[in-house]
Design a binder for these strands. Sequence first.
DNA 1: GAACCGATTGCCT
DNA 2: GGCAATCGGTTCG
Length: 208
Amino acid sequence: MARDLLGCVLWAERDGVACAGRLVEVEAYLGPDDPASHAARGPTPRSAIMFGRPAVAYVYVIYGMHHCLNLVTEADGTAGAVLVRALEPLAGRDLMAARRLGGAGPAATATGGGPRRPADRSLAGGPGRLCQALGIDRGWNGMSLLGEPSGGRRLWLTPGAGPPPRLLALPRVGVRRAADRPWRLVDADSPCLSRPPARPRRRREAPV
DNA sequence: GAACCGATTGCCT
DNA sequence: GGCAATCGGTTCG
């Protein structure tokens, strides 16, 4: 599923305004056989959604200040989700930039004293950044990925256009357990990754 | 209840 | 490259 999702376009709509980006970096997390997964120790109040029906969002708070968006992928009863780690912005870039600048307000997007508008590559490069850019918070947990509206929000996917991504499988970021599993999939040619691919060390990277 | 910790980010040197 | 910020979830007593 992570392979298939890479290159697709994710849309997130709030109050009638949608932002979109191409998925260029994802990570796969499984169930009890994956020690790095929130579902590693069976269902808990937080991770139960990973065991539930697919095609819903799993959103959680990390480090008390950021949100991470996952797409629940496995059949009902089986745990599994794909963490969305980076988007290449396609639509709604101004709104994404404004959200990334937080309380600074729209004035900050203009020239002048305030914080500068983030470069397109860092608008949604990183799981926390992309949630901030899309306005995704815990209220989105459980949202349909099929565009079914809920609370003025919608979330859906469309097929990617253009050339297919050049897939690269790398170790997952930020996990201590099962750090060796190369389940971080990136489009090696995207400038919008949360971090650039490690320099081509011999046999560290495996094409998929 | 309390302690510990994390699928991160941005600012510091 | 180091490290603080910050809080919900999980685990333990």
